[in-house]
Design a protein around this nucleic acid. Sequence first.
DNA 1: AAGGTACTCAACCGCCTGTAC
DNA 2: AGTACAGGCGGTTGAGTACCT
Length: 328
Amino acid sequence: MGHRCCGKQKVKRGLWSPEEDEKLRKHITTHGHGSWSSVPKHAGLQRCGKSCRLRWINYLRPELRRGSFTPEEEQTIIDVHRILGNKWAQIAKHLPGRTDNEVKNFWNSCIKKKLMSQGLDPKTHNLLPKSHHQRSASNNAASSSQSPLLQSHNQQQPIPVHLTEITASPINVTLSTDQYHDHGQNPSNASWTRVDDPTFHDITRLPHQQSTDHSTLINNISSSSPSSSVNLSVFGLLENSNIWASGTEPFEAPRILVGEQSKGEEVVLQQEKDTLLDQMEIKGIEDMDHASIFESSSVDFSFVESTLMSCGEVSQDLNSMCNFAWRY
DNA sequence: AAGGTACTCAACCGCCTGTAC
DNA sequence: AGTACAGGCGGTTGAGTACCT
């Protein structure tokens, strides 16, 4: 039987046998994979190169972490997905030892349903229309015990902010109007508080993280994944001053060499950026010292920046990232 | 016990992008 | 500039398994 990606050879398909696994493992550990298209030949496998690559990446790599996802990993997936959407490879990068395939499967089989049973649109992380929610909730008796978090959340419709102007792929961040005021000048002791609704919660928080105490919540989230530098709650919903808590690795600001861009591109990008910024409602935080914000933050923005970069938003310095992060 | 249904997850497919020529 | 190729990625499929009636 032919194969579309390597039509000439006869290749085996379907599940891998232990013998095939062993051949592939032995070949790669001794020779490395080099060109994947040549791996089957050198390893003595009747598989196509793509298949070998997939098998190695998803199953044979020694650094892979097997077993079920922890609540912390689940929260990380939800948080990152809220920002990036179905960018499984990007999401997986923030879960050491997990593959994009694994994350994708876990999302589709578990998290998606969980969110839907809680009345949330898994695509946008926004609330579904009430009828839909009731229907899905009744369809899923096992998870019908809605968390207090969502009960309170349902009382207030968040306003989806679509960032399609900034990125090529839609990124939806859910927030409420005028949620936060900045009471501090120094980010290290800035006091970020919601001003309109003390019952508002991060909509994707897990049941085990229910708490009306925002300090506890943020501490839980940020301490729950020590191996990950991601705490994306900050992008969706800035909770309070705890996000500035010290004691973790200071964020090292990513730097992009201005010289890598042409002058013309710089001008155009700057104009686009200015236009976008004009369109956005400014919440009074841009006066903050951005550099000091990042230095005192434990939040890793680099992946967001890389995503924005790949989607066409090129920043010459940290300002655009600051603008992005601190406006939403 | 048997049949049906739901679920999980490994693997495949097709498209896109980057690179070499 | 155009083409071919390899690698990477997200979406989808289907086999195996668990659970339910």
